[in-house]
């Protein structure tokens, strides 16, 4: 059920016949009242309050606080090294995960897009980590990454590389990329499924025509698959970005609470600030966070439209 079909159906509906004969309007309106109330009161209203809190210096519990304009936002970007550090790490994590996950998932999907049994079995095995909690996955990888006796180092020693001694999550500036590796490990199978769904929508006749014309498998990949898979690439890339941006569970599981500064990301920073009784300031951080996610979502819509037009 891709966005494509959904939007097409939606636009057909708008042009289609009126459907009020299913009972009077107010009766149908009663159906959505519970959801609208629950959701409006518990999600939309708090989100709006976040904007209000973000321009205060409220600590979260005292009865009085002041409106301080955009001071919080100014401090975030000018004087808060912790915030810019977290923002930096978030971007690094996001970029690394998007690149690795999209490329690896696409490559695997090409190998697994047919429906023979081996493909189906491999797909369902590599998808499995996606349903685990990120905390569980993080615990497994604290052992994989452990500097002494960890799986990764033991593996290198056993194959003869005794000089290798990695401390992936130690205090070095590459730690965030090792976190990215775990994120990619967990969700690559999910992205393979998205790609496989995209690949299976490409008409087989196109490949047949190409191979009659003498195009090799690689040329087919370049000239048939590549243009037609672009909408899925956009979907996977943006979904991966948002997922990585929100990967606070993984960071907590790998690095503890509060996490070490070299793996601190925006979503963990918000919670740490909040725990430090700086509620107004944390709200400002969460507004920035929301704007970034919103930007990615808008970008996705634009790109989807562009790639759909091209193909």
């Amino acid at each position: 059920m891709s966005k494509l079909t959904f939007e097409r159906i939606a636009s057909q509906q708008r042009r289609g016949p009126r459907r009020s004969s299913l009972g009077s309007g107010w009766k149908l309106a009663l159906f959505f009242v519970p959801a609208v109330l629950v959701y409006g009161f518990l999600v939309i209203y708090p989100t709006l309050r976040a904007f209000q809190y973000s321009i205060t210096n409220w600590n979260g519990y005292s009865s009085n606080y002041n409106y301080i304009g955009f001071t919080n936002f100014r401090l975030l970007f000018t004087e808060d090294g912790l915030f810019t550090n977290a923002l930096n790490n978030s971007v690094k994590l996001m970029v690394a995960v998007v690149i690795v996950e999209t490329i690896v998932a696409f490559g695997l999907a090409v190998l697994l897009s047919n429906n023979i049994r081996s493909s189906r079995v491999v797909r369902s095995v590599i998808f499995f980590p996606a349903i685990l909690s990120a905390v569980s996955v993080a615990f497994a990888f604290t052992f994989v990454y452990a500097p002494d006796g960890g799986l990764l180092n033991t593996f290198f020693h056993d194959i003869g590389l005794t000089s290798v001694h990695l401390d992936p999550l130690g205090s070095n500036r590459y730690a965030i990329y090792w976190v990215a590796g775990v994120q990619a490990w967990q969700y690559v199978g999910e992205m393979v499924l998205l790609f496989v769904a995209g690949l299976q929508q490409i008409p087989l006749e196109l490949y047949e025509a190409a191979s009659i014309d003498g195009a090799s498998r690689l040329r087919q990949l370049r000239h048939v698959t590549r243009p037609l898979i672009m909408p899925t690439v956009v979907l996977v890339a943006t979904f991966t970005m948002i997922q990585a941006f929100q990967a606070f569970q993984l960071v907590y599981g790998l690095s503890g609470n509060p996490p070490a500064s070299n793996v601190d990301i925006l979503s963990t920073r918000i919670l740490t600030t909040f725990a430090d009784s700086k509620l107004g300031y944390a709200a400002a951080e969460s507004i920035v966070f929301m704007l970034i996610i919103g930007t990615i979502a808008i970008l996705q819509r634009r790109l989807l439209r562009a790639t759909r037009g091209a193909s």
Partner: peptide
């Protein structure tokens, strides 16, 4: 099954939340 804006409006209201990350609203 509500026709026109009476269906579109509440639908839009309900799904706009898909764009709101939990971290944005959790503090309030």
């Amino acid at each position: 099954f509500l026709s026109g804006w009476r269906g579109i409006l509440p639908y839009g209201f309900l799904v706009i939340g898909l764009a709101i990350p939990a971290q944005a609203s959790i503090i309030p």
